[in-house]
Amino acid sequence: MGIDVLKKLTSGTVHINTHSTSEISTVFSQAKGAEVNKFSGPHPAGCVGVQIHHIDPINKGDVVWTINPFAVIQLGKLFLNGVYDTSRILAITGSEVKNPQYYKTYTGASIKKFIEGNLTQDHVRVISGNPLTGTAIGKDGHVGFFDHQITVLPEGDYYEFVGWITPGARKVSFQRSLGLLSFLSPGKERVVDTNTHGEPRAFVQSGVFEQVTPMDVLPTHLLKSILAEDLDEMEALGIYEVIEEDLALCEFVDVSKHKVQEIVREGIDLIQHS
């Protein structure tokens, strides 16, 4: 039903994007008038920006709306029963949670009762969403409107003696620089904290941004054009095709510790309000 509503709301095509190997519910496979696209691969293959880029890239003047399956169900229920269903399934996750599990709750619920007495230690960061794109909300915060997950990680506000050279496999790294040995045991579970592991520096073009951006977009050039507030350049380099989460991995792997997602948001706001 939700999909039928969507078709009424747009004059364009409705795309249903699913994972290529997962079982596809008949709701999707039998949905009429909608195109089903299958995606596979590591993050950010699941980001809508990346998916749109590969189906039909956004050009200047295009309008593309995205909606997650949960919201489609909400829409369907609204039109079938006339009720706005605010219930949602919330996953409480992260290394510092004693009993990670799903909870049934409501949009915007306080997370206090889910984590009280459920933490292994006190010095933690509570994140609404996932660790790559989420927002720190504090122990008595509320679930974000778009989030279905709460992540609790250890806070990383500690000094580490000559931390820039100590070898080890404890810290997660996408890269293999001297002493970063996590690539030797890729399947192992590790605790990640919120330390920046370094201080901000100028951009270094080591080619890793390109490795984690499966789009025909040049991340460094785009980011620099945003910092320069050059609207024409931003447009030419594809600002319409990205949102924060698409470049979240760039922020994670960045040697120079830039706030990539913040920069992307600045760029989008700039071009939207110009």
């Binding site: 790559l132 919120t194 370094g198």
Partner: peptide, 12 residues
């Protein structure tokens, strides 16, 4: 934004 970071920095 990203709440976690790669262990690499420019010094390394």
């Amino acid at each position: 934004g990203s709440q976690i970071r790669d262990a690499i920095d420019l010094k390394r």
